[in-house]
Amino acid sequence: MIEIKSITKTYGKKQNAFLALDNISFDVPDGMTIAIIGKSGSGKSTLMHAMSGLDRPEIGEVVIDGENILTLKQRKIDAFRASKMSFIFQSFFIQPNETCYDNVVLPLEIAEVSRGQRRAKVEAALAAVELGDKIRVKAANLSGGQKQRLAIARAIVNEPKILFADEPTGNLDSVTGGVVEDFLFNYSRTNKATLIIVTHDPDLAGKCDAQIEIVDGKIYSTKGLKETSEGEIA
């Protein structure tokens, strides 16, 4: 369960202050797939960063499984992200000069998973995105869709309970994008993992259990979501 309690984030100072997130509250039950939609600059990425502890809003709480991650020390948040969360980005952020294995094993190394378990986990993750035969191939030699699947394998290798995807299909054509979407939803379903997709693609958003639309840092509308009392609906 992720509980977002009236978070507010400001960029800049005094006269130039810009309210990126304005008093946002909602709950995400475990295993739910939820889309955060909005135009660019609306604050949807900032919301994702706040939810994952990458960013620290000045006001509010992000309570995950009963713990407010915003009050944790940086080391604790890092460890929390390493063990429970993962990310997929629009531009993949894979290391082209490294092999698929070395790309995918990174989260396991960060989370200090013992060496004996790594190989099997990497193989399973690559198999899940149908890249099992590419384990020794350099990431640079993969196609765009394969690169994003590799990024998914890296994201799911340590079996996170929460998966953030920032415009996961933004750089892909509709066919390869569809394949990538299927892998994401499939992972969420089989592992009962929460999937949070930041997108401006209404089709992709439509496939999620719930949607939140952000406009100018505020929740503009929600669908399939029970909003908490603190929340304001514009």
């Binding site: 994952s52 990458l54 940086q74 080391r75 890092d78 460890a79 929390f80 992200r81 390493a82 063990s83 969360m85 993962s86 990310f87 980005f89 952020f93 290391q95 990174l106 989260p107 960060i110 989370a111």
Partner: peptide, 16 residues
């Protein structure tokens, strides 16, 4: 820069 950002997002500590 991106690689560092990704590693930090994946939970790598500043010290590491």
């Amino acid at each position: 820069t991106q690689q560092i950002g990704l590693m930090k997002a994946l939970g790598m500590s500043a010290r590491d």
